[in-house]
Each structure stands twice: as structure tokens, then as C-alpha cells.
């Protein structure tokens, strides 16, 4: 009976895993099938022309990278501080729980709400206008839960003997954070950052009203009223509005580039994640 149940559960789990892999494989295949034809070196190095029906996605790619770099610069220090606050500095269990709930809730906020928040606060009240900085800050805030939770989990998994040993050697709390906790938990920071970036790279809603335009921008020349072109918005507009088959083919090619970017970020996080699992297994 027990063996039959084991086999049944294994069969269900295997079926679910295969179904998930088929869905992912289907998405990748569909995008690659439709987008590969328009993909070329010129597509990556040329700027958009003819409302997306000609040229390439150079500035869209650069704009996306600028937003991601800004988001990373915004989220890294804040997420690190939040994780340290949760794992090291907060003494009260209730305070730690509240911080954890806040991070979880932030993670669940629909991305369009971040866009509306950015429109109200940064674009209108602070007067940034549509700007790459606004988009970067919003994506950075969106990434915060992913990055800080990944680091906090790593800190929580750090064996207490390391902190005790360091304290026993006369190291101050701040020195323990710098010399023991952060170096040993850096894998969590890298994993969280890359996964957060992978999510942020595909977001359209937060930057729709705050940071990006479809055409008429190249590299930012300032901070205020300085929008950028981005890949997600480019794909969104071409897919929704364009009737030109050439532009639609290029939208698929842009989607393939975006997919490759996200895949690269996820793969870059893999060694750090594997190391974490390996260390958890072997102590």
C-alpha cells in the first residue's frame, strides 16, 4: 500500500514537472521560431526606424540595461540593510515578523500600482517627469523583496557557530557583519539580485507612465524629463498596435533578445544557488 502510494505521488510529481517544462519549452520555442528570422547583428546594433518596421533595438536594449543598472544600484544597499536589520540588528521577534510581512506584501503588490505610485510621487510631485531615474527607482523598489528575502534567508541559514566564533575572537558586531556574515551570505545577495533583475527586465507596467517612450529617445542626457526606450515597452506597443507584419516579426525578435537577457541573468545566478544548496546539504 505504502509503495503504491509512493509510486502514485512520484508519478503525479513527475507529470507536473514535465508539464511545467513543456510550458517553458513551448514559450521559448514559439518566441525563437517567430523571432529568429529577424535577428541579426544589425538588429542589435542599429536604432529603430519606421515605427519598428526597420532598423534594430540598440537603444531599447541600452535603455533596458540603464534601468536595470539603476534598479540594482537602488536596491542593493537598501535590500542589504533590510536583510541585516532582519537577521542581525532587530532584537524583537515581533519587529522581525513585521518586517518580513512588509517585504512579503511588497512582493505581492501588482506592478501597475508601482507605476501609478511612481507617476504620482516622482513624475508629478517631485517633478522628475518621465525619466530613466524614476523607472530605475521603481524597478529597484520592486526588486527589494526578492533581494532582501534571498539575503535574509541566507543569513538565517548561516550556522550560529560562525557568529559565536567571531564574537569569541573579540570581533565587534559591525566587523562580524563585514567579515563573516556578508562574505558568507554573498551568494544570497547575488542570487536575489539576478532573479530580481530578471523579473524587472520584463516589467512594462511600472515604467509605462514613468520612464519609457516608444520612439524619439536615445541615451539619457539628464535626469529630469529624460525617458529611455526599453525592450518590454517596444514589444508591448508593436504587438498591440502594429499591423505591419515586418514590425510584428521584429517584436518577436525583440522578445527573443529580452528572453535571452532574462535567461542569462537567471543562469548567472545558478552557481551561487547551487553552492547554497550544496552548503545546506553538507552543513
Amino acid at each position: 500500500m505504502r509503495r503504491t502510494l509512493d509510486r502514485f505521488v512520484t508519478a503525479i510529481a513527475t507529470t507536473c514537472a514535465i508539464a511545467a517544462l513543456l510550458v517553458i519549452g513551448g514559450i521559448v520555442t514559439a518566441i525563437a521560431w517567430r523571432g529568429a528570422g529577424a535577428l541579426s547583428v544589425e538588429f542589435l546594433t542599429d536604432s529603430m526606424r519606421g515605427a519598428g518596421a526597420a532598423g534594430g533595438i540598440l537603444y531599447n536594449l541600452l535603455g533596458t540595461l540603464i534601468l536595470l543598472a539603476t534598479a540594482l544600484a537602488v536596491s542593493l544597499p537598501i535590500a542589504t540593510s533590510l536583510a541585516l536589520l532582519h537577521g542581525v540588528y532587530l532584537r524583537s521577534e515581533r519587529a522581525r515578523e513585521r518586517l518580513w510581512i512588509a517585504l512579503t506584501v511588497t512582493h505581492g503588490i501588482p506592478s501597475i500600482l508601482f507605476g501609478l505610485f511612481g507617476l504620482l510621487v516622482f513624475v508629478r510631485i517631485l517633478g522628475f517627469g518621465k525619466s530613466w531615474l524614476t523607472g530605475g527607482i521603481l524597478l529597484g523598489i520592486m526588486m527589494l523583496p526578492t533581494v532582501s528575502v534571498a539575503l535574509a534567508e541566507r543569513i538565517r541559514a548561516l550556522p550560529a557557530k560562525y557568529v559565536e566564533t567571531a564574537a569569541g575572537l573579540g570581533m565587534s558586531p559591525s566587523r562580524i557583519v563585514r567579515s563573516v556574515i556578508l562574505p558568507q551570505c554573498a551568494g544570497g545577495l547575488v542570487t536575489g539580485s539576478l532573479l530580481g533583475l530578471a523579473r524587472a527586465a520584463g516589467e512594462t507596467a511600472p515604467i509605462l507612465f514613468t520612464a519609457t517612450v516608444f520612439a524619439g529617445a536615445t541615451l539619457p542626457r539628464g535626469v529630469v524629463d529624460s525617458p529611455v526606450l526599453t525592450l518590454p515597452y517596444h514589444i508591448f506597443v508593436l504587438s498591440q498596435d502594429s499591423l505591419d507584419p515586418e514590425a510584428r516579426a521584429r517584436a518577436w525578435a525583440a522578445a527573443l533578445v529580452l528572453l535571452a537577457l532574462v535567461l542569462c541573468l537567471s543562469l548567472a545566478a545558478l552557481p551561487a544557488r547551487l553552492r547554497t544548496h550544496e552548503e545546506a546539504r553538507h552543513g
Binding site: K161, Y162, T165, L169
Partner: peptide, 25 residues
């Protein structure tokens, strides 16, 4: 704690070299 050192039941080794472990504190 530097004046009154401690050795634990289980050795706690930092994932660095032998020399760096000795000089860690």
C-alpha cells in the same frame, strides 16, 4: 573576549585558507 578566548565543542572553520583562519581574529 580577546582577553578571554574560547574554544567550542565543534570546530568552526571559516571557508578560507589555513593561514587566514589562524589570523582571522
Amino acid at each position: 573576549r580577546a582577553r578571554v578566548g574560547i574554544l567550542f565543542q565543534q570546530p568552526a572553520i571559516f571557508p578560507v585558507s589555513i593561514e587566514k583562519n589562524v589570523l582571522f581574529g
